[in-house]
Design a protein around this nucleic acid. Structure first.
Lengths: 107, 107
DNA sequence: ATTTAGTACCTTGCATTCTAAGGTAGCTTG
DNA sequence: CAAGCTACCTTAGAATGCAAGGTACTAAAT
């Protein structure tokens, strides 16, 4: 998997996951990795940054399967940022696809 | 435009453009910028790197409108890399879209 | 009882790559 | 001859993903 593709997109992925439901960090790594391989060293600093920027709040909950889980809950700011980022993402993909497809139409 | 989205994708864009026809650097900036805003400071180091890696050869041609242009011509390695990168790109987009779309299917 | 494996949190230093800002130089037009 | 466009390039800075490391809890296996 191309590492560079991921830059900036993981933020959208995290916001999207949390838009669906509250998640804890370890869960995010596993769920997102089903579609895009990522590591813990990527997620935790990102979660910290996004929390500092006010995109979500956190709360702890105990688990029967290990140490307590820190859940992340999207704020209104987080939700509206998700919508913005999503738009930007689709428009970006469209731009790239246009270049790629035009190139393949050579005679 | 989200800077981070671009990481790694410009390589695909450049290879795609050159797959269509030989181009010079300044031309690549302008053509790609029609779909994705990029600056010269991005392209020239990238072209140098990709040339060093054997993705294309170069030749000079004089111009009536300014200084001579350095044209980039895709090698076989460059062309096959373009095909690989293109596949990775589509699969990556699919992965991200899956996450985004599933998140929007919450009740 | 101790080890192993899985869950779950986190930090640090490194690598990559895009950008802004700057520099050089040719050609054309006023 | 100055301005503006074309065309090349470099440098220092910012952003972010990763590997590798650490801590600690629980449960199962030895």
């Amino acid at each position: 998997m191309n590492i560079q593709f991921k830059k900036g997109v993981l933020e959208l992925c995290v916001l999207s996951m949390l838009f669906k439901k509250d998640c804890y960090g370890y869960e995010l790594v596993n769920e997102i990795s089903k579609n895009i391989l990522i590591s813990e060293g990527t997620i935790y600093p990102l979660l910290k940054r996004l929390k500092d920027e006010g995109y979500f709040t956190t709360y702890l909950e105990e688990s029967q399967e290990g140490p307590p889980r820190k859940y992340y809950k999207l704020t209104d700011l987080g939700a509206s940022t998700k919508v913005e980022l999503e738009k930007e993402w689709f428009s970006f993909v469209e731009g790239v696809n246009k270049i790629v497809k035009e190139a393949n139409e050579r005679e």
